[in-house]
Design a protein around this nucleic acid. Structure first.
Lengths: 99, 99
DNA sequence: TTCTCAATTCGTAAAAATACGATTGAAGAT
DNA sequence: ATCTTCAATCGTATTTTTACGAATTGAGAA
């Protein structure tokens, strides 16, 4: 075995993080919704997606942790948006991983 | 909640399966190795990647199940290769999910 | 201040992923 | 037929993921 850093580079780990975040149908559906601007609010998504609201919150949290989305308070709701910068980065990293 | 099939399409589920398979650093490293033709054999990979052989086998199995790689027996070893068709499909689906 | 509503967090359970060493299996070499 | 050798599978443990309903929080409305 070689030293970890040689093979498992930071770039590769970041790519894996993004891929993992994308690795669930619900989360992809969330991104699709946000990307199409069809909706931005937790409540609206909860009506469309076949999961409980608490589960939806968990998926939103994971996407936030991965940096793919962000939420802006717009009382009484929260407006979710794609984080374009990281979304682009994810696209780049994944497309380069699949080159 | 709407009927599942409307939102969670087969395409979206397939995309999630690919993304999930890509969502681990070791598996990305495997694909990188296979893609660069630097090596193709389980034993060679086991020397390079910082995991036990049995763990490596598990990751190879997951990549196989996802359709991203395939193994051809070449006694006494097994030659692993990228499954180009599905690799392309994954690239396509993911890039379209991140459009 | 109290009420209401949206969203998150908590508590919990079940399933899946990750990892390892030991064992087994399959194929060629002796 | 027996011995090697490579890789997969088994058995197991730990951690993470996924999911739900209940309880909490926070901000504006009454």
């Amino acid at each position: 075995m070689q030293p970890t850093q040689d093979i498992l580079s930071e770039e590769l780990k970041q790519t894996a993080r993004f891929a993992k975040a994308l690795g669930h149908p619900i989360r992809l559906a969330i991104l699709e919704l946000l990307n199409s601007q069809a909706c931005c609010f937790h409540g609206d998504m909860a009506e469309i997606l076949p999961v409980a609201k608490s589960t939806l919150s968990q998926h939103l949290k994971e996407l936030k942790n991965a940096g793919l989305i962000q939420g802006n308070i717009s009382s009484p709701t929260i407006k979710y948006c794609i984080n374009r910068e990281n979304f682009e980065l994810a696209k780049q990293l994944l497309s380069s991983a699949l080159k």
